[in-house]
């Protein structure tokens, strides 16, 4: 398949500028049974995140006397992509994403407050449109806040890609397929630190630095929408008296 032209006159295939995010909506507390939950709709992505815990660590010999164990499962539903029926069960990609997502929350959660327990995070991609890991982790952060689990910060991220030789934020599916680099980033705006970082595609150091600048800059908008989601839930409860 020939690569389409993805950037014309500074506009991307869906009309966005290089620093524009796709439409983004987050809803907190969408599941009744989970301790915390959130739904994120980001571009055509639809991803559900849920949290159980802290609860007693299982199996018991895995309990850590110094901190809570964090488990994170990322998976894509077999019907989530535009292409063929996916295999159910986690593939290698999903296992790797689950692992790096777990590391994000091992950092963000104040795990030392809950020795010998575990916190289970599930990220279920119902529909995928590029940038699912970043969207899923952003939703999981809201779900953790909704569960009242103490964290250093409400974390979030924006992926950066190189498309037609230009760095752009929040790559969608066509840009992901035909772009030459993809850089998912999760940040903490409170500490100005990077919690998740992956990269593929050849870039100079200067380009990586620019990509990080873009992520930090646009993450501010994502954070505002996360906060709005949480406030909506709790304000609604108030007036629904």
């Amino acid at each position: 398949m020939e690569k389409p032209v993805l950037i014309r006159n500074g506009k991307r295939n869906d009309g966005r500028g290089v620093m524009d995010l796709r439409p983004l909506k987050i809803t907190a507390g969408v599941l009744k049974k989970a301790d915390g939950s959130a739904m994120i709709e980001w571009g055509k992505n639809k991803i559900l995140a849920a949290v159980y815990g802290p609860r007693e660590a299982f199996p018991k010999h895995m309990a850590n006397p110094n901190r809570a164990n964090v488990n994170c499962k990322y998976s894509m539903a077999p019907f989530s992509s535009l292409e063929e029926h996916g295999r159910s069960g986690p593939n290698r990609r999903a296992i790797e994403i689950g692992k790096v997502a777990k590391h994000v929350f091992e950092n963000a959660i104040l795990t030392n407050q809950f020795p010998k327990t575990q916190i289970d995070i599930s990220i279920e991609v119902l529909q995928s449109d590029g940038g699912t890991r970043i969207a899923g982790i952003t939703a999981a952060a809201v779900a953790l806040a909704d569960a009242g689990i103490p964290m250093r910060d409400l974390v979030q991220g924006v992926s950066v890609g190189k498309v037609d030789g230009v760095l752009v934020v929040d790559v969608d599916k066509p840009e992901d397929n035909y772009g030459t680099s993809d850089i998912p980033v999760i940040v903490s705006l409170r500490s100005n630190e990077i919690l998740l970082f992956q990269l593929d595609g050849m870039l100079s150091k200067k380009e990586v630095e620019t990509a990080l600048d873009y992520s930090f800059e646009t993450a501010k908008t994502v954070r505002e929408l996360q906060i709005e989601a949480l406030k909506n839930k709790y304000v609604l409860e108030e007036s629904g008296a």
């Binding site: 915390g36 104040l110 909704d146 569960a147 009242g148 689990i149 103490p150 964290m151 949480l230 709790y234």
Partner: peptide
């Protein structure tokens, strides 16, 4: 560290 309501001298957690 948690979602809370801030009052003059403390934070009242909403969940947890």
């Amino acid at each position: 560290s948690v979602i809370c309501v801030k009052s003059e001298d403390r934070a009242v957690p909403l969940k947890g």
